[in-house]
Design a protein around this nucleic acid. Structure first.
Length: 587
RNA sequence: GGUCCCGUGGUGUAGCGGCCUAACAUGCGGCCCUGUCAAGGCCGAGAUCGCGGGUUCGAAUCCCGUCGGGACCGCCA
């Protein structure tokens, strides 16, 4: 071994011991006589003191040492002289008096500093040198936190009687859902494996196998456009249980996270325990989102009735078209500048609104783009119902109800960020249940499954399958936290007849059903147990626990927004020989 | 597919028609310095301002295009 201890573990209790450490030079402070190095490894940083009484050859070698050189240092641990302790360092009570220094490897000047997060380089630069960026304390801590999260999950589920089973990465393309990543088959030219969007089918088949209480830290792949909270490959805690109802699954997952948060992120508070449970309809109406951020108020207020006879044409035409009028109240925002309001209007438009009427409530009365159209009694009722007071800004949306909710939901989050309304130490977990079973796709003019095609409908709604699909609800559920969807799951279909009906509703032909899902349908004929499960997204949860603004910061080697690996430069071309073996030609 | 924002020494920023022969910080090189911890002091090197075209007497600065990056909408069962 190159070392007897790690840098970050040395404490006052080690004083008097001789230790050997190895690590990187995080900082150096050379006073001409005495010099200090901060030596860093994954565990942390410790101060090495180099006294001028060391042999000349050591002092000469040390004089050349620069940032990020790799050193091995033998020395003894000493309490720092009184007054020289550094309370900002975990190891700040002590220092290592160097006796021997070995240069294990010098380093070129790095493209950027890793010992400070001030002036963070451009993200492309960070990704290109990801192996250096990961040396930052911040990213190192994120990796450690992620490990703790996954370790906690494994331990907790093991105690609950779950077993971890791996499922294939090379599997089968599915017509529903996200775009698949395809893997060409050499032995069957023209045929493809697909990387799993999730182990959905496989975990259900494991239930048919009797592998009750399965879980897996599962990599999932979806070939869709990226976002700050979406990578083309991501990791889920995939779990599935047999002989359970919805609340059995929710209780298990709620228990897992309720115990995990204090264990891995003690600085985080839970918003409430037990977690609130909302219907899909309720969160859309109150928060304008199916993944509400509960850390602050500003709920949507329905003012359709108050403004039913409004003289404002914008409101009139929305109501005539069968729409709704709702508003949100932004605290202390009456003084927002014209420029900011214009910018905000653009935000509203990006969610589908045609404009963004607003009222600034001032001591002199209501002001704003639509103020003159409001009658006195309307204003009074409006303030009464919305709770708006002097100094507040009331922002309206009037359109089809879905657009109104979406717009105000989006503006609500805009104000959250602008006014810093959300408590950063809060983890506001909640359940969203009672999702509609089908969603009508305007583009294809066809019904699609809102969750996925293996989700069980509410049994009571089965008769409405053909007559009124919009009124069928499902046994699906989402776990949300701080405005993110952090898990989703459902009770699954375990009966062949219902599954068949589902595929038919989705417009799949008999041939397609057999070719794509024949194995599932057949499996359900051999005694499939009732089952259900869920899949919390590990990247997003770690992102929230680490207070990171995007999931790239909690993934060791993430891809950029275009799905490229900037470090290795992937995707990239391949040798003609490889294509020939696969019998692939390009146009 | 769409909207918006950003590309200036190694890195991060400033400059936004002439004062730019491009500024500041940090890093880099040299010298000084025995208790610092973002050590300090002095000196020095380092940029055809992403790329191409245009407007102008004059472009880092304005316009068009293009490439790269980020945020968002669509998309993400």
């Amino acid at each position: 071994m190159y070392r007897t201890h790690t840098c970050g573990e040395i404490r006052a209790s080690h004083a008097g011991q001789t230790v050997t450490l190895a690590g990187w030079v995080n900082r150096r402070r050379d006073h001409g006589g005495v010099a200090f190095f901060d030596l860093r490894d994954r565990s942390g940083v410790v101060q090495i003191t180099i006294n001028p009484d060391l042999p000349k050859e050591i002092l000469d070698a040390v004089a050349n040492v620069r940032f990020e050189w790799v050193l091995q240092i033998e020395g003894f641990v000493q309490k720092r002289p009184a007054g020289n302790e550094n309370p900002n360092m975990a190891t700040g009570e002590i220092e290592i008096i160097a006796k021997h220094i070995t240069i294990l490897n010098p380093a070129k000047t790095l493209p950027f500093m890793v010992s400070s997060d001030a002036d963070l380089p451009d993200e492309n630069m960070r990704l290109k040198y990801r192996y250096l960026d990961l040396r930052r304390e911040r990213l190192t801590n994120n990796m450690v936190l992620r490990h703790k999260v996954v370790k906690f999950m494994r331990d907790y589920l093991d105690k609950q009687g779950f077993i971890e089973i791996e499922t294939p990465i090379m599997f089968k393309a599915t017509p529903e859902g996200a775009r698949d990543y395809l893997v060409p088959s050499r032995l069957f030219p023209g045929q493809f494996y697909a990387l799993p969007q999730s182990p959905q089918q496989l975990k259900q088949l494991l239930m048919v196998s009797g592998m009750d209480k399965y879980f897996q830290i599962a990599r999932c792949f979806r070939d869709e456009d990226l976002r700050g909270d979406r990578q083309p490959e991501f990791t889920q805690l995939d779990l599935e249980m047999s002989f359970v109802h919805r609340d059995d699954v929710l209780d298990l997952v709620e228990g897992l996270f309720t115990e995990m948060i204090p264990a891995v992120a003690p600085h985080k508070k839970l918003y409430s325990s037990p977690w609130p449970k909302f219907s899909y309809k309720e969160v859309l109406e109150r928060f304008g989102s199916d993944k509400p951020d509960l850390r602050f108020g500003m709920e949507l207020v329905d003012v359709t009735d108050i403004l039913a006879k409004s003289e404002f044409k914008v409101f009139q035409s929305a109501l005539e078209a069968g729409g709704a009028i709702k508003c949100i109240v932004a605290p202390k925002s009456a003084e927002m500048s014209r420029k900011e309001l214009d910018a905000l209007t653009e935000v509203a438009k990006s969610f589908g609104a045609k404009g963004m009427p607003y009222l600034a409530v001032t001591a002199e009365g209501a002001k704003g783009s639509a103020a003159k159209f409001f009658k006195e009694e309307e204003l009074t009722a409006l303030k009464e119902k919305s709770g708006a007071g002097v100094g507040d800004l009331i922002v309206f949306a009037s359109d089809a109800r879905a657009i109104v909710n979406k717009t105000l939901g989006g503006l609500r989050l805009w104000f959250r960020d602008k006014l810093d309304l959300a408590d950063k130490t809060m983890m506001a977990f909640a359940w969203v249940v009672d999702f509609p079973f089908f969603a009508f796709n305007e583009e294809t003019q066809a019904w699609e499954s809102e969750h996925h095609p293996f989700t069980m409908p509410k049994m009571a709604d089965l008769p409405k399958f053909d007559s009124n699909p919009a009124e069928v609800y499902s046994e699906a559920y989402d776990m949300v936290c701080n405005g993110y969807e952090t898990a989703s799951g459902s009770i699954r279909i375990h009966r062949r007849d219902i599954q068949m009906k589902m595929f038919q509703m989705l417009g799949l032909s008999e041939e397609d059903i057999q070719a794509k899902f024949g194995h599932m349908l057949e499996a359900f004929e051999y005694g499939a147990p009732p089952h259900g499960g869920m899949a919390p997204g590990i990247d997003r949860l770690v992102m929230l626990l680490a207070d990171e603004p995007n999931i790239r910061e909690v993934i060791a080697f993430p891809k950029n927004q275009n799905g490229r690996d900037v470090m290795a430069d992937a995707p990239s071309g391949v040798e003609p020989k490889q294509l020939k073996e696969l019998k692939i030609k390009f146009e």
